[in-house]
């Protein structure tokens, strides 16, 4: 048969298109969607006060040495996979909303537009606050240009300080809204992709549920944004420093330089040298 003999050495993507697209869909929901829900909720907790937010960040950072593995394995790797395949998928579609002005066709177009906004937003966002990787030279270089700004043990103050300019305020609001739409609408299309909702009526019901989820996330996300832009970094830092001192004494958090804003009023400027001592003084407390 000609069709068999003629099949050329097709690309890896063509041969595994089904698996790759399904993995793309899956990564959009878990871990990425699930992460976003938790992330926005954690960030919104800042509205309850600096201490609440700081406690949440302590909890996340109690993973210690495991944290980079969790970050790369469960967040960054799936994110980069979904993002790169997503850009490819968006490039292969040819939107035609000018001729076919149906609501679902617009949703299709906006799924792609918000995906591309999310791409720019997340690449910048992670660099801006987290820094992507924590090699000291890389972080120093980033810091000099206003990136890698977040310090987990000064969570609220460093986040609020990083959001000071109008550019970042607007950037975060648009980026976060785009992510929320993308996830809520993506949840609906993923239900069709995997065959969770089949009949037209079921798809309509699911669409309403996904819209509701999207609206709730919109409120949560906007609260997170508001918390980040309305917090006073100076006042927040005082609270964080008190908490750090107390937790350090109690042995709940290890002393750290890179997770703290420098110069550090608790450990002092010569932190690295003191850190060893502090560790020694903490040790009996944990017995």
């Amino acid at each position: 048969m000609t069709s068999v003999t003629a099949t050329p050495c097709t690309s890896f993507f063509t041969r595994h298109e089904f698996a790759i697209r399904r993995l793309h869909s899956l990564t959009g929901i878990v871990p990425l969607g699930a992460y976003m829900v938790v992330h926005l909720t954690t960030n919104a907790s800042l509205l309850n006060g600096t201490a609440t937010f700081q406690r949440a960040v302590y909890a996340i950072h109690s993973l210690g040495a495991l944290l980079p593995i969790v970050e790369w394995g469960l967040i960054f790797a799936p994110l980069l996979f979904h993002a790169i395949i997503g850009v490819w998928i968006a490039r292969t579609g040819r939107s035609n909303t000018s001729h076919y002005t149906y609501a679902n066709n617009r949703r299709y177009k906006w799924q792609r537009i918000t995906g591309l906004i999310a791409f720019v937003y997340l690449m910048m966002h992670v660099w801006h606050l987290h820094g992507w990787v924590h090699f000291s030279h890389w972080v120093e270089l980033g810091e000099r240009y206003g990136f890698a700004q977040f310090r987990p043990y000064n969570a609220a103050s460093t986040m609020a300080a990083a959001m000071a300019s109008w550019f970042w305020k607007a950037f975060y609001l648009i980026g976060m809204w785009a992510c929320v739409y993308h996830f809520a609408n993506g949840l609906w299309t993923a239900g069709i992709t995997w065959g969770a909702w089949i009949s037209a009526a079921a798809q309509q019901r699911a669409s309403k549920v996904c819209t509701a989820i999207g609206l709730v996330l919109l409120v949560v996300g906007t609260s997170a944004w508001w918390g980040a832009i309305s917090t006073d970094p100076v006042a927040a830092k005082l609270i964080e420093d008190q908490m750090y001192e107390a937790n350090l004494k109690a042995g709940v958090v290890p002393p750290s330089v890179e997770k703290r804003t420098q110069p550090d009023p608790v450990l002092g400027e010569a932190a690295p040298a003191v850190a060893g001592e502090a560790e020694a003084s903490v040790a009996p407390a944990s017995e």
């Binding site: 041969r15 298109e17 089904f18 035609n96 149906y102 679902n104 299709y108």
Partner: peptide, 19 residues
């Protein structure tokens, strides 16, 4: 349908059903 260009290529724009 699970091969290249199969059902996974659909992007759920739902124009097909509308036209």
């Amino acid at each position: 349908l699970m091969g290249p260009g199969g059902v996974a290529t659909c992007g759920n724009a739902q124009n097909c059903v509308a036209v």
